[in-house]
Design a protein around this nucleic acid. Structure first.
Lengths: 195, 195
DNA sequence: GTAGGATGTAAGCAGCCACTTGCTTACAGT
DNA sequence: ACTGTAAGCAAGTGGCTGCTTACATCCTAC
């Protein structure tokens, strides 16, 4: 791995742990195993390095599991998608929490528009529309609010499970199962009784 | 307002804006309109001041709207409760986001246990159990996961609406309405068709 | 084999950080 | 009038911050 990549990775790690102010150029250099001057030679300033590190960490998402174009088994499809999305959020939770905490002080340091989150929301929205069009979702619902709802649940679980253990005592997989079941019943999709 | 209270309020405000490192003793003192030395005479250290400011801001919650012991009109009751809870979260969103972003670096700076959030979750859980006991909620569901789900949606909305405008374009009140309707249908409570 | 680019070392800059010391002012209670 | 308390002021501590300058070293491409 090149010196440049080592610096970017160290910067992302330290930023997620300690925030913008806490990720000092000295600490980043030590963490990356290079000289502090090299950092400035490559990126010019701390700000440029941090921005590159965050924007790279944010777009390195690989959407392994995609929602199908035409729904066949809503529960299985949505649960698998939700599981993948949740795992992704959980893997980035430190970085996401830090970004959220500092967004007012450093606006524009993470992209908001065209983020993987927004893309996921759009995909989910389209899937829900398909569900209704195919007659699988029989209840009246606003698909924008509905997709926001499901994504919100997953987001809150991913962010809160480790830092609010008294609120998330149950098994993660069981919780996921329940989220999807409750959600599907909410939009009028029949779910086989099993829990 | 006493000098002490001015300092606590200024510390809470600055912490919410700029985080632990950004809320310097100088800035807090200027914001409070007192001398920096006075800060140390009152609280001994910056850490003690910040801790007191956060713990006070966190417990100053007044739960205006309570869920009734025995449910009568689930939709109205739950929507009113959710609206109040959402408004409360939204009012504290800066502080909450900052705390979340720094919880790994400063664990124990906000209480987690016995927090108003946990109390709200417990109250909601009891209400859902009552709904089922009274035969109003006819679907099978895990009330812990269900209450976590509703609270998660509200949490995500409160935290994300201002910083992810492309994901929360709809009207807040309409979104709230949809959340509650979808949720109630999810747990098997009949909702009058109107949207 | 040597020129050039990438990296390292040493030293330092001005500025901010939390916090301290020593002294002064203002006012309240007795 | 005496005293305690709360607050202010000026000055300074050592340490960390982002960033710079000047000079030495390495490795590779020609």
């Amino acid at each position: 791995m090149s010196v440049r990549d080592q610096l970017i990775e160290a910067a992302a790690r330290l930023y997620a742990e300690a925030g913008y102010r806490g990720a000092t150029t000295r600490r980043i250099a030590v963490e990356a195993g290079v000289n502090e001057i090299t950092l400035f030679r490559h990126f010019g300033s701390k700000d440029a390095l941090i921005r590159e590190a965050i924007s790279r960490a944010e777009t390195s998402l690989a959407p392994d599991v995609l929602l199908p174009e035409s729904p066949r088994e809503p529960f299985r499809e949505l649960r698998d998608w939700a599981r993948a999305h949740l795992a992704d959020l959980r893997g980035r939770r430190s970085l996401i929490r830090t970004c959220m905490g500092e967004i007012e002080e450093h606006p524009g340091i993470f992209s908001a528009e065209n983020s993987p989150l927004a893309a996921a929301a759009k995909a989910l929205c389209r899937y829900l529309r398909q569900l209704r069009a195919n007659g699988l979702a029989k209840a009246p619902f606003d698909e924008v609010a509905a997709s926001t709802m499901l994504m919100g649940v997953l987001f809150a679980d991913a962010m809160g499970r480790d830092i609010m253990p008294d609120m998330y005592r149950n098994d993660p997989e069981h919780a996921l199962d329940q989220y999807v079941k409750l959600f599907l019943r909410g939009i009028g999709v029949g779910v086989r009784r099993s829990s």
